[in-house]
Design a protein around this nucleic acid. Structure first.
Lengths: 233, 233
DNA sequence: ACCTGAACACCGTTCAAGT
DNA sequence: ACCTGAACACCGTTCAAGT
């Protein structure tokens, strides 16, 4: 029997399964293959283990999804503790803006986060800790608890760095010929006008139809300014 | 053989299946039993038909979900065409506000809409028609196409009447005893302070933690005012 | 043409058994 | 204690057959 068979057979000392290892594998699968690929069987495969083994470390698939969000918010908390934004007592808008954009950076690495958060029914302690940080900034900026409460709702998911677009920006289909285009323009003149204006203003962004980062910042600043006016009034 | 058997056996002239009937049944199931109960088998049962029969009228389940959104937006369009809001040329904020709150009324009858919209990958013509109406208001209010484009993104899902809360408002659990409460207050003083302040300000709303309609309107007005300032600057 | 029944390939999960 | 294999109850969907 040749040596390489021995090497193949001679396994590494098995590192035991744990909740953390299961969740890390789940994040890996979701990042690499998308959230739809996240099945119990697939996570087990990622760990070189039978599906049923996972149930010794997580209650069920829902618990894995909860854990996924816990992991992401953990990453966000680590990021905001690392870096240093403006002093909230002097510039609450800058401080909150910095924190939210830091969260956004993390989310860009885990694009499935918004869709998973939407389905959670309970709030993890990690999420509570994140909210606490946002509230601390608002309070340092002179917000009453009541206005801060309104602010949290007005920000909604934007507080954690993502905006809920009504529909995902779809690629303008190549197959749309001139005739159909003209018919569309007849029925929907304002939309046609807007698309033409945007294409004209900035031809480079025509493909993606809009720059997510730019739009996110535009809306965020709009809300922050509005809250500041409410605070002063 | 008694008469009632005959009546039972003698079926009504079978009204044939159609795409519309399938979609109406799907809306009915989703409204009554929730979106998770919406399976091909369940819709078929609702129609007194075998699951496979559905496939003669819709391509697959995704097509049903697309159709569901089409139905809801259809309802919204009917509602905004029926009623009469302010004249957009004189009061674009009032006109848009009226339109969005009309859409919200419809969504309250179909609470599954936000979660389904999130999963759609293509934009239906109904959605295009709705956007066209929003754009018409903004244009009548004096918006450039560019600013109108920003406005659509800033509104996001709010343009159709729903806000994406970061987490669903959960009921304050009854089991949370005083000791745990105090521990929470130590770790998260701002959150504890806010919850106390809110409970104090308006004890009647403590149970639901926040009034969705109030918060929706607060954030909507914040954005509309911000857009008006951008328009004038 | 429209509808059907059996079957397939996937899920999450229970259960009784292994080490 | 931790892990496993077989099995169950559900999906969406294909296919060949009925009327």
């Amino acid at each position: 029997m040749p040596l390489w068979i021995d090497e193949e057979t001679d396994e590494q000392p098995r590192v035991p399964l744990s909740r953390r290892r299961v969740l890390r594998a789940a994040v890996e699968v979701a990042d690499r293959d998308g959230i739809d690929a996240l099945t119990m069987r697939r996570v087990a495969q990622e760990l070189g283990v039978e599906p049923m083994s996972l149930y010794h470390h997580v209650a069920n698939k829902e618990a894995i999804l909860d854990g996924l969000i816990e992991m992401v918010i953990g990453e966000i908390l680590a990021a905001v503790e690392d870096g240093q934004g403006p002093d909230p007592a002097e510039d609450w808008q800058g401080a909150l803006r910095w924190r939210i954009l830091a969260a956004r950076e993390v989310l860009l690495r885990h694009k499935w986060t918004p869709s998973v958060i939407q389905t959670r029914t309970s709030v993890s302690e990690a999420a509570i800790a994140y909210y606490e940080g946002v509230l601390a900034i608002l309070r340092a900026g002179g917000f009453s608890y009541d206005l801060a409460h309104h602010a949290l709702h007005a920000l909604g998911s934007r507080a954690m760095g993502f905006a809920q677009e009504l529909f995902e920006p779809e690629e303008p289909s190549e197959e749309m010929d001139a005739a159909l285009m003209e018919q569309m323009a007849m029925k929907y003149p304002h939309l046609a006008g807007m698309m033409a204006a945007i294409a004209h203003d900035d031809p480079d962004t025509t493909l993606s139809w809009c720059d997510d980062a730019t739009e996110f910042a535009f809306a965020l600043d709009l809300i922050l300014e509005g809250l500041e006016r409410r605070r002063l009034s």
